[in-house]
């Protein structure tokens, strides 16, 4: 069976592009807008997934938590963070539609970061997204985006979602 069985790839790609643009443009409201009202976001390490350990780096398991994530970045910790420019590169690996209409997708990603003091670009993390996507009013939205990093030891503290 094709890894892209009868799925509207274009809508998925648009959603993913909006997501990474939001983060790379430092626009957390646009990041939030990528999720449905049932949306969840998880950033975790491959080691935790492999060993069935549920703790994550970020665990926003309801829409209220997603809104609190925006507040954490933009208000609560804004002035104490050393901000950095992120740049995401993603690659759609698979997209399949389940019986309930939810589209399951996988993307590989690599994320680079450039601090505003050294301006030297380094790798923040490499991994994969495992997503559940719903189509609402002709628009794709994340019901769940799980970012699983192969980079089990992150090279710095992480201010923003990946």
């Amino acid at each position: 069976m094709s890894k892209f069985s009868s799925v509207n790839k274009e809508l998925i790609e648009i959603l993913n592009n909006e997501y990474i643009s939001a983060l790379n443009d430092f626009n957390m409201d646009n990041w939030l807008a990528c999720f449905s009202q049932q949306g969840q976001y998880i950033l975790t390490a491959e080691e935790n997934i492999r060993r069935n350990l549920p703790v994550a780096f970020m665990l926003d398991d309801c829409y209220a938590r997603l809104k609190d994530r925006v507040k954490q970045v933009m208000e609560i910790q804004y002035d104490s963070s050393e901000h950095y420019q992120m740049r995401h590169f993603t690659q759609l690996i698979s997209a399949t539609e389940s019986e309930n209409g939810v589209i399951e997708t996988k993307f590989n990603f690599s994320v680079y970061y450039t601090p505003r003091d050294t301006h030297q670009t380094e790798t923040l993390c490499v991994g994969k997204y495992e997503d559940s996507i719903v189509i609402e009013k002709g628009e794709a939205l994340f019901q769940k985006r799980v970012a699983i990093v192969d980079t089990n030891v992150l090279p710095r503290y992480v201010v923003y979602p990946v």
């Binding site: 780096f57 926003d60 954490q72 910790q77 104490s80 050393e82 710095r156 503290y157 992480v158």
Partner: peptide, 19 residues
């Protein structure tokens, strides 16, 4: 997952101060 550690609501600032 959300309060302590390198992304935590009440500890990410500590990491920033270390640096």
């Amino acid at each position: 997952s959300n309060l302590l550690g390198p992304c935590g609501l009440i500890s990410m600032e500590d990491a920033s101060v270390f640096s």
